[in-house]
Computed example of a mutant assay.
Amino acid sequence: MAKLSRLEVMDLKNRYLSKLRDNNIPMDQVKHYISRDITDSKQAEKMIKELDKEFTKIKEDDLDLLLFDVLEILQETPAQWTVDKDNNIYTVYPHPVVSNGRVTGVEYKTHKSYYFEDTELFDRYIVLQNDIAKASKKKNGSGGRGRPSKFSAEQVAEWAKLKDQGYSYKTIAESNDVYATTIGSYVRKYKKKQQAG
C-alpha cells in the first residue's frame, strides 16, 4: 500500500471538499471515493476525520452567514402598508425567502412571526441566542470577556483577511476572545461596505 505525499493528500482533500460543498455529494459517497483513491487505510481514516471536521466548520460558517442575512432583513427592512381589494389598509411585514442556502428575496406577509423552515438554520439561531444570553449575563457583573461594544476598522479588516485565508469564524473568535457570531456579523458588514465602494 503506497502512501500518498502530503501534496497529493491536500489536493485530494480540496477535491473532496468541493464535492461535498459545491456538488452536494453526500459524505457516504465521498467515503467511497476515498477508499478508491487512498489505498493506505490509516491515511484514508485520517482523511475522513479531517474532511468531516472541515466540512462541519464550512457548513457552520455558511449557516451563520445565511442567518445574518435573514436577521438583517427581519430587523432592518421596514414594514409596508398595503390595500386589499375592499380598500382596507393594513401592514405587511418582511419575510426573507431562503432557497439553496441563500436569501433569494423578500416576501411581505400580514404577520410578524418568521418561521425557520430549515431546522439547521434554526439550530444556528438558537446557538446565537445562547451566545447573546451568555454575553449579557457576563456583562451584568459576573466577569465577562471585557470586550468592547464596537471593534476598530483595523481589527475587523484583520478578521476579514483571516476569513479570506480560510480560517473559520470559530477559530478567529477563539484567538480574539470574541463569539463566532460576532466575528461573522462584523466581517459580513465589512465586506458589504468594501463591495459597495
Score class of each variant (00 low, 15 high):
residue 183 I to Q: 09
residue 34 I to G: 14
residue 78 P to Y: 01
residue 181 T to L: 04
residue 80 Q to E: 01
residue 111 H to Q: 12
residue 146 G to T: 05
residue 56 T to H: 06
residue 75 Q to H: 02
residue 58 I to K: 08
residue 190 Y to V: 03
residue 107 E to G: 04
residue 49 K to Q: 12
residue 189 K to G: 14
residue 118 D to S: 11
residue 128 L to T: 10
residue 180 A to Q: 10
residue 168 S to F: 00
residue 24 N to W: 03
residue 29 Q to P: 06
residue 140 N to S: 10
residue 114 Y to R: 03
residue 103 V to R: 00
residue 137 K to S: 13
residue 120 E to C: 10
residue 176 N to Q: 12
residue 91 T to W: 00
residue 57 K to F: 09
residue 62 D to E: 13
residue 131 D to A: 14
residue 88 N to A: 13
residue 89 I to R: 12
residue 180 A to W: 06
residue 62 D to C: 08
residue 28 D to T: 15
residue 174 E to W: 02
residue 46 K to I: 09
residue 69 D to M: 03
residue 4 L to T: 13
residue 194 Q to C: 01
residue 51 L to R: 11
residue 95 H to A: 04
residue 165 Q to T: 09
residue 16 Y to F: 12
residue 94 P to K: 00
residue 38 I to H: 00
residue 97 V to C: 00
residue 57 K to S: 15
residue 35 S to I: 00
residue 72 E to P: 05
residue 83 V to H: 02
residue 50 E to W: 02
residue 100 N to S: 07
residue 82 T to Y: 06
residue 83 V to I: 15
residue 85 K to E: 15
residue 84 D to Q: 02
residue 177 D to T: 13
residue 162 L to C: 12
residue 22 D to P: 10
residue 37 D to E: 15
residue 89 I to M: 10
residue 63 L to A: 00
residue 182 T to L: 05
residue 108 Y to R: 03
residue 77 T to W: 02
residue 93 Y to N: 01
residue 196 A to M: 02
residue 159 W to H: 00
residue 84 D to E: 03
residue 27 M to D: 05
residue 126 I to E: 13
residue 130 N to T: 04
residue 137 K to R: 09
